[in-house]
Design a protein around this nucleic acid. Structure first.
Lengths: 319, 319
DNA sequence: ACCAATGCGGACAGGTTCCGCCCTCGATTC
DNA sequence: GAATCGAGGGCGGAACCTGTCCGCATTGGT
């Protein structure tokens, strides 16, 4: 049995290579008869993984897209590449798939062999984080996976927390949800010592340690954790909407910034409305266009650009 | 058999969730007796996937890191998250794992169900590419996967190419290698019409289509494709080394830019040597530090910063 | 037009394996 | 101490797997 099942997995991994495999070669590799290979292929098809076969000489088998994801069989390097990719993606927080990213990271971390984990750590450290926030704080992807595990496993969690006012405290809570908000992450947890629900900014948590003790999850006094968070946050990060005139055809701007509100003024000019939580990010986008522009809103952005202007002036000296 | 193998896969997918599963629940879910679950767990262990069990009440099974990667069983959202992560990572070209990233992308794309592919496409488009090159060209991740497949499958490839001098041509080549070089990608291929090896910049290729026709791979007249490319490139993209003095402790700079050569001058100042292929990238890094700095080299960077200075000045008007 | 290489699938026989049901033992938590 | 959970041995009957036949369809090259 371990024989057959193992062989099926090996077969899947071979067929996932983007090439065609003749049955004879598969038989040689797996050390069974070609007839068994045909049967194995049938089995895979029965399991819902569509194996396509091309007839004739030069024919062979290969796995194609079906209706469900087959198990991914990765070699070491591919696994590292995926882990690094998820980390960088988690740092930038691609809208709409934050939770899924973290789940995938947690899943991968759980089974990633130690030697690969070291490589991921090294590569992740060597990668420049694109920090565009005023505070320059980024969430540690490692923390996210620890939190996701604790939540899924219903384990109590200890950590140290530095509140916004600088007060340090030790906490021992029952974590329930991880909520992304802009480029930040919040943990929604019940704090038994204070007998109430609390929110914690993940980047302010340190010395995380799941205690291993289980708890029965309590019901949140709201349906949607994100809505509950929004409702109870005393101070939310301010957001800005930039309004700027850009000397570039609207079409070009749309192509480079999908998702940004662009309104054409004439053939070569358009008005751009962008929305984010840091002026640094907005300034970066405008500069990145590489064309003349004019900022109307908000005053914070104008101030930030002036500061950049002056700083560059001091950096390169008088022209 | 499909029964047993399928059950093993389901079991693996359950155990990959970051939580513990009591055997009784697994038995209920998989509709077999607890004894069979124990045997299945043994089988997984025999296959090299370390399943850990905690004894006693509240006990259960869970998959832990072993020496080899187990097959990853992803739900739809996780698969999308990984695909998006790989795309963004491929665009930024994390040093050392470029090929592995592309391989993983090709593997995933090959089996990604159509409905998920659409979601990946939509999300990928909505994600702002961090374009920091002078030309603003980024490689289309889709192209990379097509090329990787064609290479692995030894399929001939048709495409249109815009050479550096602007000349358009149609090509029909035998692709052999994909070589990353800085943030660019090159295809090393044999061109039968010209009876010689050629290099193509991937971002200049359009209308890619694998023809399906096979070819017997020829031997490259060199051991290392990357070395061969470097040797034969007539015009390589120029690279720059920035030398700048930064008003920030060396320790802080190192923490934020691992991999960059930083030399402390005094407690609050350091000299930074950074190396890239575009001045835009260098300028961005320096500005991102958010502190006073002074640029010594190269003149191109100084020129670029002056231009930024003037452009910002025109954008926000006189202070 | 023919041949070679490939995939497809039925039948059969022998050996293997799997599954559920018993049982006991050890560890852990309440 | 009781309850819960994992570990593992043994048994019998049923199911399954594998290899070896076989003939057939499809494709590409000579």
């Amino acid at each position: 049995m371990t024989d057959t099942a193992g062989r099926l997995l090996t077969l899947l991994s071979l067929l996932q290579t983007p090439r065609e495999w003749p049955g004879s070669e598969l038989a040689r590799r797996l050390e069974v008869s070609p007839r068994t290979i045909r049967r194995d292929v049938d089995r895979l098809r029965e399991l819902g993984y569509p194996v396509e076969a091309s007839m004739g000489a030069e024919g062979g088998y290969r796995l194609v897209a079906g209706t469900a994801m087959p198990p991914l069989l990765l070699d070491d390097e591919e696994a590292v590449a995926i882990a690094v990719g998820l980390r960088t993606a988690a740092r930038q927080t691609v809208a709409g798939i934050e939770e899924a990213s973290v789940r995938a990271m947690a899943k991968l971390e759980q089974v990633l062999p130690a030697r690969l984990r070291r490589r991921v750590g090294a590569l992740g450290a060597a990668t420049l984080p694109v920090v565009l926030g005023a505070d320059g704080v980024t969430v540690d992807p490692e923390h996210l996976t620890v939190l996701a595990s604790a939540i899924a496993n219903r384990e109590r969690l200890r950590f140290r927390y530095s509140a916004a006012d600088g007060a340090e405290s030790r906490r021992h809570v029952e974590p329930l949800h991880l909520v992304p908000s802009g480029r930040r992450w919040y943990l929604v947890a019940f704090d038994p010592e204070r007998d109430d629900w609390r929110f914690f900014r993940v980047d302010r948590m340190t010395a995380l340690s799941p205690t291993g003790a289980r708890f029965a999850p309590r019901a949140l006094p709201a349906d949607d954790p994100a809505a509950y968070l929004a409702e109870h946050m005393l101070s939310r990060a301010p957001t800005y909407t930039a309004v700027a005139t850009v000397r570039l055809p609207a079409r070009d701007v749309r192509a480079r910034f999908p998702g940004v509100d662009v309104e054409a003024v004439d053939e070569r000019t358009c008005v751009l409305r962008n929305f984010t939580d840091t002026v640094e990010y907005l300034a970066f986008h405008l500069l990145q266009l590489g064309c003349e522009f004019e900022v109307h809103e908000p005053p914070e952005l104008v101030r930030h650009l002036r500061e950049l202007h002056d700083r560059i002036g001091r950096a390169v000296g008088p022209g």
